[in-house]
Design a protein around this nucleic acid. Structure first.
Length: 205
DNA sequence: CGAATGATCGGCT
DNA sequence: GCCGATCATTCGA
């Protein structure tokens, strides 16, 4: 019924970044880059809450050229470079100044798989193609040049659609985030969410 | 201005 | 399954 499938701004303004993270599961991330449209269903996310989350780039009000996008009002893309080469795609949520974000960690390939394979320089489809935050951005053609663009305005190259898939609580597995041991007590928080039984997520722990 | 660091990937055993 | 390469960004002086 929704002719406009693009998620609306109110979605990104939800108060709780954890709720938003779970709600993003089952949604479709679409990119229109180089004249090619590629789509993947989101099957794994991770929440980063500014201010009180030590694992977040914006912890302790760290405000730099790179992280300033996170402080904007929800509904924009925050793409940053990790380890020098990996582009990681985040969705900024919450109100301006809160610096909440949801990292997209894994996708299930949907449309234009051939293009994704080509971008990944692969010949055969396998979970590795889009499982992992650094690989899925490559498959969709997302780079840091798209950091700061809106996901809600019309005619932007990246957006998120709701195609009616509803993931209920029972299908969501929560687990601790990875690679954040340095974050002390925050490292134990179960802020990583994945769709149960999806073969497109990284292996369960 | 320089050194340390990390929300990772891919190749090898 | 594990180990290490790789480089932009950050922070302190």
């Amino acid at each position: 019924m929704a002719t406009e499938k693009r998620l609306d701004k109110s979605f990104y303004l939800q108060k709780d970044v954890l709720t938003a993270s779970k709600a993003l599961l089952g949604k479709y991330l679409v990119s229109n880059i180089d004249g090619r449209i590629t789509t993947g269903m989101i099957v794994e996310t991770e929440a980063y809450r500014g201010s009180d989350d030590k694992a977040c780039h914006a912890y302790n009000n760290r405000y730099t050229e790179r992280t300033k996008v996170m402080y904007r009002e929800g509904g924009v893309a925050y793409v940053y470079l990790c380890y020098g080469i990996h582009h990681l795609f985040n969705v900024v949520t919450g109100k301006q100044g809160e610096a909440h974000a949801v990292l997209i960690r894994a996708l299930e390939p949907i449309d234009n798989i051939a293009t994704m394979l080509q971008r990944r320089k692969m010949t055969k489809i396998q979970p590795r193609m889009t499982a992992g935050p650094g690989t899925l951005t490559k498959a969709l053609g997302i780079t840091t040049q798209y950091s700061g663009i809106s996901l809600v305005e019309k005619d932007t190259p990246i957006w998120i659609e709701d195609r009616g898939t509803n993931i209920i609580e029972d299908q969501i597995i929560a687990s601790p985030r990875v690679g954040v041991d340095y974050a002390e007590e925050c490292a134990a928080w179960d802020w990583r969410f994945r769709v149960k039984d999806s073969r497109w997520t990284s292996k369960a722990k």
